[in-house]
Amino acid sequence: MEKNAVIAENLSKSFKKVNAVKSVSFGIGKGELFGFIGPDGAGKSTLFRMLVTLLLPDEGKASISGLDVVSDFRKVRNILGYMPGKFSLYQDLTVEQNLNFYATIFGTTVKENYHLIKDIYVQIEPFKNRLAGNLSGGMKQKLALSCALIHKPEVLVLDEPTTGVDAVSRKEFWEMLGRLKHEGITILVSTPYMDEAILCDRVALIQDGSILRIDKPDEITKSFGKPVFAVKSDRTHDLILDLKSFRGVEAANLFGNQVHVVMNNSDVDAGQITTFLKEKGQTSLDVREIEAGIEDCFIDLMINKS
């Protein structure tokens, strides 16, 4: 895949006291669905705002389809679709008026690019005369995406489109992104939800303004390199404490009703852990070796960085 749709080289940005983005570099191919995964305050929004020409980088440079985001910012704006963290909808305009407005300011019409938004828009079309302010979170999200797409951008930048949205709407949203990818649109999306990483072609794990790792999600998990066990018992809270006292345990973290245990060497098997926990008085035990997930990797990278 050509890596020329979006390029960033050593981008840095500071505000007063905070180094929001610290020398970040990456290249994103045309038609790629690229995720920036990290918690709030990691610098995702600042990074995106530099890419969409809203902020000037302190250092480094970036380009979109070969156009520099600083010197060619007007041209960049023509080929960009941007959805900011707060859904940028006019609450006092109807669904249809919002869409028409964004179409006209980009010098196009809803009709012209209707095929692009059809899948998404049909779900909210029955409510086209409703004020945007009266829509639910999931619906607002769909409308905002339609608005960002209506001028057929080459690159779509979505800042936390799924934050605060329920699991069903989130799933649907990702399905829509998958379809847009097939239209050849390059998509950059940021999210604090680790489980959304596997839905991207490639991801950058980002924390404290720096990228911890860039790769395909399954490459990241495959290269974890340390054995991970999923442990279940009927007393989850004590289980973590018990596991932390086991030799060779690097980390023990809650994952749903299980505890994921990361070992620092590979000479321990599930049986040994079971025996140890039984001695500690744990019952209804279930210990299994598993493959690490993105969240395991993220936690591991966070710990090893600091």
Binding site: P39, G41, E160, P192, L254, E295, I299
Partner: peptide
């Protein structure tokens, strides 16, 4: 009400330990 929205995975778990 959605106390852990956007919080990093380590802090999120520490937060739940506080809830426990």
């Amino acid at each position: 009400d959605e106390p852990t929205g956007g919080v990093d995975p380590i802090t999120r778990r520490q937060f739940w330990e506080m809830i426990y």
